[in-house]
Design a protein around this nucleic acid. Structure first.
Lengths: 133, 133
DNA sequence: CTGTATCCAAGTAGATACTG
DNA sequence: CAGTATCTACTTGGATACAG
């Protein structure tokens, strides 16, 4: 998702028949490391804008580069707006678009499921690991 | 997600404070290339089982190796059951667990959103690309 | 039929240094 | 402050060959 060179349809081989299912393509976007966090933070702040530095603070562990790359991808996808205050130094504000907000609905459902059930997945893994020794 | 060696908490650096948000960890799983397709096919078949070869047919483009890896990850996570018929050659049947079925609910919402809105994301990308030249 | 093992190409993200 | 460039390590996944 982060790289421009990669065209919408991958170069695999049997690409002729594959319309690249929309879900897969969506997951290629929100599945990248920091995207879901960024959307979550922006959704919680909506309808207010959030500055780059503030986003960085609210997403523990994200690097300057990856936050920048992540946000610009979201902007390109029309999920986020970017507004630059032409001051020195500049201040850049981000906000979810209506499309971005609508995406946050199913994403929030996924977050809820994750919070309620990841512990079960962890337990299942622990059991498998102990069984396989 | 597919590799065992990687421990739950990455080796980044600031891993001490980070409880690895459940959503991120869930997306690490369902975000891999074939997982969402496999869950979808299994959910559509539920409560019936689906054989390995049948799954392979219904997931265009998946390789033997990746389908195997994907399914075994889902089994380890407790989202799918695996039943082997001890015949020669063996037949292996897969089915979503209750946990897997419950995951398919928010996932189906995401699929619906993707089907309804990916075209807008594509348009936004087209506009950005033409603007940036 | 259903895997597993190996090897390899491509993608993803981190550290670091530098710019307007 | 916000962002870009480079360089590198790690991860993902595909091709192929082989096994129970």
């Amino acid at each position: 998702m982060t790289s421009r060179p990669a065209s919408p349809a991958k170069q695999g081989r049997g690409d002729l028949f594959d319309p690249e299912c929309p879900t897969r393509r969506l997951l290629d976007r929100i599945g990248t490391k920091w995207t879901s966090m960024a959307v979550k933070v922006l959704a919680e702040a909506a309808p207010h804008e959030v500055r780059f530095a503030e986003l960085r603070r609210r997403i523990p562990g994200v690097s300057q580069k990856m936050l920048s790359v992540t946000l610009h991808s979201l902007v390109r996808d029309g999920l986020v707006t970017r507004r630059v205050e032409p001051t020195v130094p500049p201040r850049v504000h981000y906000r979810l678009t209506d499309l971005g907000l609508s995406l946050d609905v199913p994403l929030a459902a996924l977050r809820t499921w994750a919070e309620e059930n990841m512990a079960r997945i962890d337990r299942a893994n622990a059991i498998s690991d102990s069984e396989a020794g």
